[in-house]
Design a protein around this nucleic acid. Structure first.
Lengths: 160, 160
DNA sequence: GCTTTACCTAAGGTTAGGTTGAGGTTTTAG
DNA sequence: CTAAAACCTCAACCTAACCTTAGGTAAAGC
């Protein structure tokens, strides 16, 4: 019986990983403190990485490009199986997860874009009734350029 | 001849602005230091604002929602006429400017989204040949899952 | 008139995502 | 064997976009 996961895998040093993944060594240290990647130490206390760390880093960078925070990335990565090297399907399902997030973001930005012109034009942009302006995307109930700048309480009340 | 711009406009205190615009007083101070808004002082050195500061703030918040930095917002706002209260057309042209930016961002994110699945699937996501992963959207010349993780120099050379 | 609320400035703190530097150890090349 | 290159930790620093606190003044309510 072969034991593929233990098969004498070569480990990479931080410098090698840094070079191949095109990130700074300091970033690798940083990612490790945040639980995004993991390393083992050699006899002299130096970091050694399994090769799949490269893909992990690639995924981290791709996710960052999508505007996903390291915290969210960490949460998602932590769902990967710890016991085995992640498979293609593991990565693919992560990809689907982030695609959905990205779709949401795109949809949100599209909504914002479509409203910017209309709302700035109509004059309602000034205050709380406007969905662009509103934190929680409340439906624009009254977007009529006249009744702007009102209802000062309520929203602030929650903060105090 | 009427002189509308001098017409005894009521000035708002910082507290009033904060309430009506739903931002913290500290944020207003901050925006002022960054040149995003402007105020006058009364006899007792307290800030007084013209009413159009409210629209300015609304625009700032809307722009922030589009992912535009305060610096960029400042630059854009600085193009507004200082001599007169901005008109609807002033705001509308600013709106068009930001819409274009937003369109770019949406297009970029759409490209990223469309590539995430393909690239993670194909295995090329790991390194420099991938456009998702590449800082400058370099064309993916070789996206063939086998030749991953190479050409370590070049990109780093520029940084050093 | 007095008290409470609002306001002022300046400096320092916060979070994200790292980078830089000091001081010391380990590995590697010649 | 020695020197250089790579690595280690820890602390400090960086930008953005604010918030908080301290110490003090101004305005508003009764």
């Amino acid at each position: 019986m072969t034991t593929p996961t233990t098969r004498d895998e070569p480990r990479l040093s931080v410098g090698q990983v840094a070079k191949r993944a095109d990130v700074a060594v300091s970033a690798l240290h940083f990612y490790e403190t945040k639980g995004l990647i993991r390393s083992w130490r050699n006899a002299g206390n130096q970091r050694r990485y399994k090769k799949d760390v490269l893909r992990r880093i690639a995924v981290i960078k791709a996710a960052q490009k999508m505007g996903i925070s390291l915290l969210e990335i960490q949460e998602t990565l932590s769902k990967l199986p710890e016991s085995r090297t992640p498979t293609k399907e593991d990565w693919a399902s992560m990809s689907r997860f982030w695609q959905a997030k990205l779709d949401e973001k795109i949809a949100y930005m599209t909504r914002v874009r479509d409203m910017v012109d209309g709302c700035i034009g109509c004059g309602c942009l000034s205050m709380k009734s406007c969905p662009i302006y509103n934190p929680d995307d409340i439906v624009a109930k009254e977007c009529n350029g006249a009744v702007i700048l009102d209802q000062p309480e309520r929203a602030r009340a929650a903060k105090n």
